[in-house]
């Protein structure tokens, strides 16, 4: 009976969504015409950043991103609070069987390459697809691999919190420096360089690298907290 009601409800929803979205002119709609053109123009003329998505996320809507990073921080804190343990219970994990030596040496071989890829992705966030969030996630997957392969692998929680806090503080400091120099939070105050070179875009690469460190530390902390959860 309950299933029937749900299916009926979903059918109505599917009809509604279908009517709305198949009625749109796919590929020819211009929802944000003026705004989009402004962003595409200013990202080259004012900031010299190749990746428009990066310039929107870090500069034009940078204040949003600060809020987003705060939400991520709050989620990591809430996770720690919900799964809180007394000190001496942390550290043991329930492992069904130890991983084979192939998995162990293989992940040791892959780990530096994964970290390097993550760093590359967030350093080049203003030139190519990618950026702080993506690079940070890649680095966290490297730590996940190590934590899965070695049951006694441990990450220092204090170090993670220090990295995370410093990255967050520097993000706000750069925003405030822009505020003091030009009157807007996160306004660019460094020379912008030339388009498509590594040192271009003023504060954008710096902020994205900071976001990368912050996201990597937060996600690694989340993974570590959940993996070391044991009765």
């Amino acid at each position: 009976m309950k299933k029937l009601i749900v299916i009926l409800l979903l059918a109505v929803l599917a009809w509604d969504l279908g009517v709305i979205f198949l009625g749109l002119n796919f590929g020819n709609e211009h929802f944000t015409e003026g705004v989009k053109d402004q962003y595409l123009e200013k990202t080259v003329t004012e900031l010299n950043v190749a990746n428009t998505v990066t310039s929107i996320v870090v500069n034009f809507r940078g204040f949003d991103t600060l809020g987003e990073v705060t939400v991520l921080f709050l989620a990591a804190t809430a996770l720690g609070g919900i799964l809180y343990k007394k000190r001496h219970h942390v550290g043991e994990r329930s492992v069904l069987f130890p991983s084979s030596s192939l998995v162990m040496s293989g992940s040791k071989l892959l780990f530096p390459a994964i970290i390097l890829l993550g760093v590359y992705v967030f350093v080049h966030g203003h030139l190519s697809p990618g950026g702080g969030f993506q690079g940070g996630t890649i680095i966290a997957t490297g730590f996940l691999l190590m934590l899965l392969a070695y049951d006694n692998y441990s990450v220092s929680h204090n170090l993670l919190s220090i990295v995370e806090s410093l990255a967050g503080i520097f993000f706000v400091v750069i925003g405030l420096l822009g505020f003091m120099n030009h009157g807007t939070f996160l306004e660019n105050f460094l020379p912008t360089g030339t388009l498509n070179s590594l040192f271009s875009g003023g504060v954008i690469p710096i902020v994205y690298i900071l976001i990368g460190f912050k996201v990597a530390a937060e996600l690694t902390g989340v993974i570590y907290t959940v993996l070391h959860e044991k009765d």
Partner: peptide, 24 residues
């Protein structure tokens, strides 16, 4: 249009945060 892409980047991160808290 780069604006939906930037918004989705935000939405993915918020989605991750929601999933992590829900799982805990």
């Amino acid at each position: 249009d780069p604006i939906p892409q930037a918004l989705v980047l935000t939405a993915i991160v918020i989605g991750f945060a929601v999933t992590a808290v829900a799982l805990s």
